[in-house]
Write a protein that binds this DNA or RNA. Structure first.
Lengths: 350, 350
DNA sequence: CTGAAAGCGCTTACAG
DNA sequence: CTGAAAGCGCTTACAG
């Protein structure tokens, strides 16, 4: 198990450690012949530099941290998991390791700080979905390079990778309108999350533009709940709206998990989808294709969000003095069976 | 950003580095008073030992690797992802970091070896689902502590964490039989995977025991496909069996993804579930509750598999000379709406 | 172009 | 119980 070190290689190649190091790190100023001898020795001995030693010498280890709120692991819909996988993929491609940490909620101050931040295991980190303010404050104090994904906080300046929720939402709404719907309901959980707020804003804008609906009209057709978006919330919200004297003919759910609950509500009330009620989701998680009829929704390029986050972070790591950057990733409307219209050909959108 | 080292703490506390180290590592032989002084200095300075330095000095870093075949990331059903999350959870609890690696398929020998194995970033690893033989050989050659999860290879001796597929399969079959089904079909993809073979074996055993069916009878009711289990395969298989002159009244799918395809087939043939056709799955992935009717299936404690894998590995790391161990994790039959019978109360089985 | 030396921040025998 | 010293395996000025 004990294997060769740089010293062994140097000895075998008849050069100094420094020279081997130069070769390993692909520096110039090594004669072709020396380089060759070293390379041969490395090959022969199957030498590979220890990560920990480089890390210590360089004061950086080529690892990035990924912080995800505990709750998002519980959620069955693997939304953030896909972002994580995308991040891990891009990180690996760029030669970085990814370390994962679950942010506790509630967060206790020094106790719950991710260990990899304390022991300097990571060079920087990605925070997805949301994070305790106290943790964010710590990150800022320690000046740890950081990028926020699908999350932002007023006046918290750092790199961001965000979803173009507003455009996605308006596109979805316009589709519904093009199908002739006039009374469209909006059902949302997680109603304080910036992404949900933007989707809501899209809903409102389109309603106003098209029908000049009064705020009051729109409010009647809106169900907002601060609790985590879920099928339960979707069901509640849909039931509430559908029992209105003048119920909506279409419901735009803030995400697919919520839409699942709208299906349940429709079923309970004996409404058939899409004939009696059209439903539109947001996210395009796996569940959407399992529903019957399958759900029209707004696709989010989840893996891509993760990849962009890594690119953003690596960029920051390499150029610390750059201005902060925010990347907005577009969405794609996917028409399936839950609201009529011509189906979008099914391609694998990662 | 530059922060205190053990030397700074020593200076502040008026002791030597060695003493600080002893305190940090909670060793005996430090006078209460000295310990206190050191602790205070650590607190005051918010000192935390660098991971890389400990790693180098100790020749082990408290990280474990998790190897997953590339294909399993593509699969939309997050089966292995949940195992990974469980592993990550337990690892964190035990103070280990988890590093992830995607095993390429096909695997090219030295090129595709996970880097964390080469650069000694991990102390041991967990391999889930399957892995290239050449990689397994490398692991064995290098004597890297390793545990295989939901996978085994004849004569590959190492620690294992496996699913009790045989019992799970027989329990599911017995349930179907208790409902009066006599002609039960078995539809499988990934038919060479040890877990699928065991489920198949359970199917055969029960069929033989109960009806003394001839191998021939059973074979007629069996659809096996070596390709990755999927809805497509499930649909094909179900269609094939359902078009038999004497079609099955129930189908046992090798996993839930396959069962999804069986639903499609039933729908195409105008069969209603569970009245015309009962369907039983295996895995209990999220999709199963989204189906209509929701799928009766055999629950696998995915996170628990991951956790046990970590425990097994840590155990191995701490006691290298122990005998090899195999842990078999039981399953749980969950009755929902796809085959009749009294519903299992829905609890969150993690 | 190459080597000797110091340093990264820890741990661990070994003295005392 | 405590400290001085060496070592873990790299990288990086600095000489030459």
């Amino acid at each position: 198990m004990m294997s060769y070190t740089i010293r062994d290689v140097a000895q075998r190649a008849g050069v100094s450690q420094s020279t081997v190091s130069l070769v390993i790190n692909d520096r110039t100023n090594v004669s072709p012949d020396t380089r060759r001898r070293v390379l041969v020795a490395i090959e022969d001995m199957e030498y590979y530099p220890r990560h920990s030693a480089r890390h210590l010498a360089l004061a950086k280890g080529g690892s990035i941290g990924f912080v995800l709120t505990e709750q998002f692991f519980r959620v069955s819909e693997p939304f953030y998991t896909k972002i994580l996988l995308g991040a891990e993929f891009e990180a690996a491609k760029q030669g970085f390791y990814t370390l994962l940490s679950r942010a506790k909620e509630p967060f206790e101050y020094p106790k719950d700080i991710p260990r990899f931040l304390l022991d300097r295991s990571v060079d920087g980190l990605i925070v997805a979905g949301r994070a305790p303010k106290r943790l964010l404050k710590f990150i800022k104090e320690k000046k740890i390079p950081c990028v926020l994904v699908d999350f932002k906080l007023p006046s918290y300046n750092t790199n961001h990778v965000l979803i173009d929720n507003l455009s996605g939402s308006k596109e979805a709404m316009n589709h519904l309108i093009s199908l002739g719907h006039q009374r469209i309901g909006f059902v949302a959980g997680s109603s304080t999350h910036p992404s949900i707020l933007e989707r809501y804003e899209g809903f409102r804008q389109v309603m106003k533009e098209h029908y000049g609906n009064s705020i009051n009209d729109i409010d009647k057709l809106t169900y907002l709940n601060e609790e985590e978006a879920s099928p339960q919330i979707g069901r509640e919200g849909a039931l509430e709206l559908l029992r209105l004297p003048d119920p909506p003919t279409a419901i735009f759910a803030c995400n697919d998990a919520t839409a699942v609950g709208c299906y349940k509500a429709a079923k309970e009330l004996g409404l058939s989808i899409p004939d009696d009620l059209a439903i539109m989701g947001f996210d395009d998680v796996d569940a959407s294709t399992h529903l019957d009829p399958d759900l029209s929704t707004v696709h989010i390029y989840k893996a891509e969000l993760g990849k962009e986050a890594v690119r953003s972070l690596v960029d920051r790591l390499e150029n610390p003095d750059q201005p902060l950057k925010t990347k907005i990733i577009s969405t794609k409307l996917i028409i399936r069976g839950s609201c009529g219209g011509e189906r979008t050909p099914e391609i694998n959108y990662f």
